[in-house]
């Protein structure tokens, strides 16, 4: 018996729906609110630590401190939220009801990924916005108190560059979310996914050290191995363009674009691998 042609095409609308639902579920959970509260609290508390600026200028210290809070809590939020939002669907069997509809597993995985990424995006936007507000507040106070120190042209803080740094961190979290989702796609438990996700985070932050250490290897197989690993694990240090921000320099726009392309490539590839793995999964 031949069936009528009723192919169900891949749908961006369904993907967006799943992403939107994931986002809604995440922001209504305590985890997101807790992470946001902690990050906001930490950034806001920088006022109390201004005296401990270790010799760097106060505004630079506030920026570094706030960026540290963004990176730390953003990473924690990305790994835990990705694992939790995936496994909550699997363990409570809501994934069954969704995948029993005319839904592609590709739509499910990329929907989850985009949903988590949107949550982290809101987190990054709020923390970066707060950081900019704090810096602007202190900058204004310092300019009023010491006008002779700010005789140059314009305001001393490159706010555009801070926004770029925030966006780059968000892109990095996208890569981390895709990697965590790849782990979740074959893992059996939430805990395993979270632990391995944090390991991946550490490896990605440190991989440049290993690559540099092994750059002068003479053994060809080892060089191939190191080269392969350096591509398997993205280098999270490339997202750290905050170092470029100084009194006379800012973030190179071209470099930032290349880093964005680097992140999007990894997100797409890791997401694709997660789809492949999830399609083999029996749920």
């Amino acid at each position: 018996m031949s069936a009528p042609d009723q192919r169900v095409p891949f749908s961006y609308a369904r993907l967006a729906l799943i992403a939107g639902n994931t986002f809604l579920e995440a922001v209504r959970q305590k985890l997101f609110n807790l992470m946001l509260l902690l990050a906001v609290g930490l950034v806001a508390s920088v006022q109390a630590f201004r005296a401990f600026n270790f010799g760097s200028s106060e505004l630079k210290f506030i920026f570094d401190y706030g960026l540290g809070a963004l990176v730390f809590f953003g990473s924690a939020l990305t790994v835990t939220a990705t694992a939790q939002l995936f496994f909550s669907e699997i363990e409570s069997r809501t994934a069954l009801t969704l995948l029993a509809k005319p839904v592609w597993r590709t739509e499910f995985i990329f929907g989850k990924l985009l949903g988590v990424w949107a949550v982290v995006g809101v987190f990054c936007a709020l923390v970066t916005g707060l950081l900019i507000g704090l810096i602007a507040y202190r900058e204004h106070a310092l300019m009023a108190a010491n006008p002779e120190m700010f005789t140059g042209a314009g305001r001393p803080v490159p706010y555009g560059d801070i926004v770029i740094v925030g966006v780059l961190q968000w892109l990095k979290f996208g890569v981390l979310a895709a990697a965590t989702l790849l782990i979740a796609s074959f893992s059996n438990t939430n805990l395993y996914t979270v632990i391995v996700g944090f390991f991946v985070l550490v490896i990605c932050h440190l991989q440049y050290i290993a690559v540099e250490a092994y750059a002068h290897l003479t053994s060809l197989p080892l060089r191939v191995l190191v080269a392969t690993l350096s591509h398997v694990f993205p280098n999270f240090q490339v997202f750290n363009l905050a170092e470029q921000i100084g009194p006379d320099s800012g973030v190179d726009g071209l470099v930032a674009l290349r880093v964005a392309a680097y992140a999007l490539t990894y997100i797409f590839v890791l997401g694709g691998l997660a789809v492949y793995s999830f399609r083999q999964r029996e749920i």
């Binding site: 031949s2 069936a3 169900v8 009801t97 839904v103």
Partner: peptide, 30 residues
């Protein structure tokens, strides 16, 4: 396995299917 003539591995086979799993827990926050 075919559902209304469509192999069940195809997404299209689920177009005409509604499913209630055992002890369902849906999105609690909706």
């Amino acid at each position: 396995c075919r559902v209304f003539g469509v192999p069940s591995g195809q997404v299209a086979s689920r177009r005409n299917v509604g499913y209630l799993p055992e002890s369902p827990y849906f999105y609690r926050y909706l």
